[in-house]
Design a protein around this nucleic acid. Structure first.
Length: 856
RNA sequence: GGGGGUGUGGCGAAACGGCAAACGCAGGGGACUUAAAAUCCUCCACCCAAAAGGUUUGAGGGUUCGAAUCCCUCCACCCCUACCA
């Protein structure tokens, strides 16, 4: 006996039952095939919002469906729990970051449970738990042993208000993502992971990721930014402009270029303001003042201005010259603030005719623009390709010619095709190599990963500074380096001022020493948690390689596109290093990746706390239940599409669940549910029963197929169609009739069961309640087999074929589904007779199962 | 500047070269009700009073018996990334 659908009564009840029965716990050693379904872990910044609801509902449907399909599913949850927001909140509330973090984790966990997500909570990974972060430190030490950890001085992003360096992803349009202060460039000694050692492999292996969205792979490839070109050595003239007779390595300045073919067009040479030898070059010369002023001024160009690209570019002549190796010509050396120090060599050969930036610079400072590459239609072309030597050193162009073209005024290379990867470029590089003045070189845009942070709430870098021994690793047996709990952040205390934390002895010589006080970027924690979930309680190793091998790689990874790039790139990097260390035996951690679209507010804005437009599911759950919220957010749009949250349709999904609930009751002959609106009609009833049977088979097939392809929206639409067919059936076949007819009883049972099973992954509580209380079944609905269907019963016996004449539907013919091409053509021509007017059609296209197209 | 994507009713959307708008939301009309809610029935791309008919997938062209879908040109919007030589 049951009443009408009331989610309040059933949802928490089943959540408790499931937990008690452990139906979501992973069974190790099962003979079933394994499946690892994982969603990106949340950051515990507060309670969950609609973005979380979408992400984790997708994962939950895949997980529940996979279990019903007979897989042994690992579906864990965890928290990416270190990071600045916890610390800032602690300062604000004069509290400890752990309090805030664990408080939010508890809140989110309760919300996840309230949503009915099927996690195995015994496997929860929390990044700020010493039992987890000790292994992050252990991995750091293995990286160090392999030479993948480096401490060096470089220009870095520094947020003055937050008092720490920032990762690139934390700099948004030149501003700190939290406090919006302008980020400064500073030269600091920081810790790096040498991800660039893996740049080529990371790029190459993108090809193996068949189960990843193309856009993510493309984004990664762009980020890695492989660029093929050459290094070219220019010889530096002395202060008086004399070419050294016997140049030493100090007399050589190397540049990187992808356009060696344009070397003959080099009319000046540019150094970045940060170039190490700039001061030396101009010291004591008349140029010193202006150049050094430019160097100083360039430091003040903010990343904001750079990002906007709207700052004026400046240059200053150094008074020095270098020699172009291809033609022995002396060209002036400038310093300019549009050259970046940390790409290539920090020095650039300028070819204004072929590069727009060089072109603009040459115009501004009145430097020669020598045309050395043209398209044959250019008026200069016929003249210059005849000439030997250089005759034209200025042009009246409006912009540079950056495309492929024919080289002119280029000595022996004149007449060759120039451009990126062109024969001309090849020839010039070959010549330079023969001269010993250049070589092939590949550059990457990818930088080493700056992992140190000057903040408390992170994983401490396990290193010790000793006066005698330098920087030495903390011995593995001393791990974890624990974060001290007695710290008053609100009073300005930091790890660097915490005596108890700093003071230690050198593990090598035993002398008094200092602990490193930087912590690791939170992304380091997130880069291997996927592995820890396969063996979360291991106290000997980060994870048992055998257990990792059982579950990994993740069969389906699900997460937002917005932070996909860096987290994924870092995870791939970690996996490759751990493979080289011998802890894992695979290249890629995530076989298939589903990137869900962002959930935006009704106006299309990203939801954020600072904007105050965060939408939480709490009230909706209270009003309509978690099941309706789950089903509705999937019904709104395909998962990879951006979604503007709009609550209007949620009531409709609730109505749908209510309606099907009642249908299941009626189909089960629940004595307490009265059937109204019945019109006994034998003919319509028979047809409706036939249609219902067909729809059951068709919809099981459709929903199965749709879930496999993540088309949850159309899967739900198909179930709604099934519900419509059920309504039609119930309308014309009264309970009495159904009760007294065995085939109809079977149909009733089949329909009731199918509706419940198909909706079980979407509306788990709803399904469980009906399964037990209305269908009277034993065992959880979520442990049942997914329904099967008979494709032969899924199609109608007759097909209504549209008959097109010159592309327009002019008639219809109804034929058996078995009708052959000839029969179909004959029927179509007969139906179209009045349009044919006795003539023979030009062409007839017959597509069985589809249509007939006649051309007259 | 580079890369990726999107464009279909009032709205969310569907259609893996084959009857455009499935499914739902909102809305109109009706039944039930003293009334409302709930529920049920019904209409719902556009033009035409209706039917018949015609038109329609950002714009234009092409391929095809047949195009929202494939190709070319253009427009608009969104996201990512960027002084990368």
């Amino acid at each position: 006996m049951t009443g009408s659908y009331n989610p309040k009564d059933i949802e928490t009840k089943w959540q408790e039952e499931w937990e008690k029965d452990g139906i979501n716990d992973v069974v190790e050693g099962s003979s079933k095939p394994h499946k690892y379904v994982l969603e990106m872990f949340p950051y515990p910044s507060g309670d969950i919002h609609m973005g979380h609801v979408r992400n984790y509902t997708i994962g939950d449907v895949i997980s529940r469906y996979s279990k019903m399909k007979g897989f042994n599913v690992l579906h864990p949850m965890g928290w990416d729990a270190f990071g600045l927001p916890a610390e800032n909140a602690a300062i604000k509330h004069k509290s400890h970051p752990a309090k805030w973090t664990y408080g939010n984790i508890a809140t989110q966990k309760a919300s996840f449970k309230r949503m009915g997500f099927s996690y195995d909570w015994n496997r929860t990974v929390v990044a700020c738990d010493p039992e987890y972060y000790r292994w992050g430190q252990w991995i750091f030490l293995q990286f160090w042993k392999r030479g993948l950890v480096e401490r060096r001085n470089s220009p870095v992003n520094w947020c003055p208000d937050c008092g720490t360096v920032l990762a690139n992803e934390q700099v948004i349009e030149g501003r700190c993502w939290r406090c919006h202060s302008e980020v400064q460039k500073r030269d600091l000694t920081q810790w790096y992971f040498k991800i660039t050692d893996y740049a080529q492999e990371l790029l190459d292996d993108l090809n193996q990721l068949d189960g990843w969205p193309e856009r993510v792979k493309q984004q990664q490839a762009n980020w890695i930014g492989r660029s093929e070109g050459a290094q070219v050595d220019f010889i530096l003239c002395d202060k008086d402009g004399n070419i050294p007779a016997d140049p030493t390595p100090d007399d050589i300045i190397t540049v990187f270029t992808t356009r060696a073919d344009t070397l003959y067009g080099c009319s000046f040479f540019v150094l970045a303001p940060e170039y190490a030898r700039v001061a030396e070059f101009v010291a004591g010369t008349p140029y010193e003042e202006e150049v050094m002023a430019l160097v100083e001024a360039s430091k003040k160009i903010t990343a904001v201005q750079r990002a906007m690209g709207d700052h004026e570019k400046h240059g200053a002549f150094t008074g020095r010259y270098v020699v172009n190796p291809i033609n022995g010509e002396k060209v002036p050396v400038w310093v300019a603030d549009d050259v970046v120090a940390d790409y290539g060599t920090g020095a650039v050969m300028a070819v204004p005719c072929g590069d727009q930036r060089d072109f603009e610079f040459a115009r501004k400072y009145d430097l020669p623009i020598i045309p050395i590459i043209l398209e044959p239609s250019d008026p200069l072309y016929s003249r210059l390709c005849e000439e030997q030597g250089r005759v034209v050193t200025s042009v009246d162009w409006e912009q540079a010619y950056a495309a492929e073209g024919i080289l002119v005024q280029s000595g022996e290379f004149t007449g060759m095709v120039g451009g990126k990867h062109s024969p001309g470029e090849d020839a010039v590089v070959a010549k330079l190599e023969a001269m010993g003045r250049g070589k092939r070189k590949v550059e990457f845009r990818l930088r080493d990963w700056l992992i140190s942070r000057q903040r408390y709430w992170g994983n401490p870098i396990p290193a010790i500074h000793c006066e005698h021994c330098g920087v030495v690793p903390v011995p593995e047996e001393d791990l974890p380096v624990r974060l001290p709990e007695d710290i008053d952040l609100a009073a300005g205390e930091t790890l660097a001022t915490h005596k108890g934390f700093i003071e230690c002895t050198c593990p090598v010589c035993g002398a008094p020493a200092r602990h490193e006080t930087d912590t690791m970027d939170t992304f380091t924690c997130a880069s291997w948690s996927v592995l820890r979930s396969t063996d979360p309680h291991n106290r000997e190793l980060p994870f048992d390689p055998a257990k990792a091998a059982t579950w990994m790689p993740v069969d389906q990874y699900i997460g937002g596109i917005e932070h996909a790039l860096l987290h994924l790139l870092y995870s791939l990097f970690f996996t490759k290093v751990l493979r080289d260390i011998g802890l894992v035996d695979f290249n890629e951690p995530f076989t298939n990746l589903l990137c869900q679209g962002m959930v935006l507010d009704g106006k299309g804005e990203v939801m954020s706390k600072s904007k105050g437009n965060v939408i939480a599911p709490e009230d909706m759950i209270a009003q309509y239940g978690a099941d309706a919220v789950r089903a509705y957010i999937l019904f709104m749009a395909p998962p990879d599409k951006e979604l503007l949250w709009n609550e209007a349709g949620l009531a409709g999904m609730f109505r749908f669940l209510k309606r099907v609930w009642r249908q299941v009751q009626l189909l089960s002959h629940d004595p307490d549910v009265r059937q109204d609106n019945v019109t006994e009609d034998d003919a319509k009833g028979k047809a409706a029963a036939k249609t219902l049977n067909r729809e059951l088979h068709r919809v099981i097939g459709k929903v199965t197929d749709d879930i496999e392809r993540f088309n949850f929206n159309t899967a739900l639409a198909a179930i709604m169609e099934l519900a419509n067919a059920t309504d039609e059936y119930l309308k014309y076949v009264p309970a009495q009739t159904r009760a007294n007819c065995e085939p109809l009883q079977e149909l009733d049972a089949f329909a009731a069961k199918t509706l419940v099973l198909l909706l079980a992954p979407f509306a788990p509580h709803w399904a469980e309640e009906l399964w037990h209380e209305v269908l009277g079944e034993q065992g959880s609905v979520h442990l049942q087999d997914w329904p099967t269907w008979d494709p032969a019963q899924a199609v109608a016996e007759t097909v209504t074929y549209p008959v097109q004449i010159n592309g327009k539907v002019r008639a219809r013919v109804e034929l058996s589904k078995e009708a052959g091409k000839d029969e179909l053509q004959a029927a179509a021509l007969e139906a179209a007779a009045s349009y044919l007017d006795g003539k023979t059609p030009k062409k007839v296209v017959v597509v069985t199962g589809r249509l007939v197209s006649i051309v007259i």
